[in-house]
Design a protein around this nucleic acid. Structure first.
Lengths: 225, 225
DNA sequence: CAACGGTAAATTGTTTACAATCCTCAATGA
DNA sequence: TCATTGAGGATTGTAAACAATTTACCGTTG
């Protein structure tokens, strides 16, 4: 037994800006920060015990994720998410995820299948006792696998850009209509089965139908405007 | 005539980080900065006459655009673009642009048509005297119109994330094979005609064929690896 | 009393200074 | 000879200070 046989996760402590991003994103998602609110750098910096530098970097990141809007010399403002935003996120997600499953269908491996089945197993166990956020996490965990398997760095990056917004909208839906909690297993299991056929066109159709269902259920929870 | 009838471009001087982004992107595109090169913040700051703050923000932006890679405590490195990157940019662009033309087909207006025709007119005049970069600009100008007409903020943002890389690859192609300079007009005019039919499915097929052609011509200019 | 102008406070943009981390390379010892 | 180690320099990460711009307020003016 040598030291080199140890497997260690490298201990890199995350950048402060990363912590700030997480903190702010959480506060936006849970509604602690109101829509349209002006996020002042100095205020945030003091509240989180860091300087304005990391806060600025965090705000740029959140702007990339679509949670805040930056206006020169005016600062960062929490965006107001409307029905239009739901449509934008859904249509863009569909475009991205179609590419993802097309590639994944061509790259299916036993390992990936096992990972998908592990998530599906957890989905099967979901019942009324589950928190909406936990169900959302399972949902995203499954879709994350698709993007990972697609083996496409720029696609992965694009997904990460809208992922938090998807999470936000799914949480809102799962909160409002707890009936949906049970839908997850069947739909994702079907997606899994289609992917095993290694047919990109079939996979594209399947994801379109899967996301379309989620989309309409989501729109139903949002007021017409 | 009232004052409110004036149309003025607001005179906001751009952020320094914006200038830095442009400068570095240009140096990367033209090969002045070698692939894999370590971009040192202090060095860049001094060369451009700014401090490290704006340089850091610029490097984050360039990382988002895929031109540099950031490693914690190590800094920014110019990425090495390979055949794999061409494939990634092309497949992602196709996914995005399909959504763009689907929406544009549903939103065609006389104004948009006029703008497209104006660009086409300029394309028609291209001859051997043109610089490769000028031809690339015309090409992108046309496609920019599609994204603008799609009226989809997140899609627009995604496009801007890969646009510079598309420009980089197109410049390389137009430089190597000046025969392609003439192809532009016919292909884009056909795209224009399809869009006037206001049929999203038709438009999707057309863009797939259009980009596919450009893609294969581009791959031909790059060595197998 | 609405519009204008000016001044001060608040806020962001930028620079500078300091701390933490990583890399280089020569000295060390088996 | 060659792997290891540690000191010093180089580089990034963070904080603090300064400059530029915007916003808010208020008295003035027509």
């Amino acid at each position: 037994m040598t030291v080199s046989s140890f497997e260690m996760a490298p201990v890199v402590q995350p950048a402060l800006s990363h912590n700030v991003v997480d903190a702010l994103r959480g506060m936006i998602s849970t509604g602690q920060l109101e829509q349209g609110e002006h996020l002042k750098e100095a205020e945030i910096a003091q509240a989180l015990g860091v300087s304005r530098g990391p806060v600025r970097e965090a705000l740029i990141q959140l702007a990339n994720e679509g949670f805040v809007e930056l206006r020169r010399h005016r600062g960062a403002f929490v965006v107001e998410l409307t029905r239009t935003d739901i449509i934008e996120v859904y249509t863009l997600r569909l475009a991205l995820e179609r590419l993802a499953v097309e590639r994944t269908a061509e790259r299916m491996t036993p390992e990936l299948l096992a990972e998908m089945d592990a998530v599906l197993e957890k989905m099967k166990r979901v019942d009324d006792g589950y928190e909406a956020q936990a169900v959302t996490r399972l949902d995203l965990e499954f879709h994350d696998l698709l993007y990972k398997a697609a083996d496409h760095r720029r696609l992965q990056s694009s997904w990460e850009h809208i992922r938090s917004q998807v999470e936000f909208f799914l949480n809102a839906r799962n909160d409002s209509f707890r009936d949906f909690l049970q839908v997850g297993y069947a739909e994702h299991a079907e997606l899994r089965d289609v992917l095993t056929q290694r047919n990109p066109e079939l996979a594209a159709k399947a994801i379109q139908s899967h996301l379309g269902g989620a989309y309409h259920r989501l729109l139903a929870t949002h007021p017409q405007q």
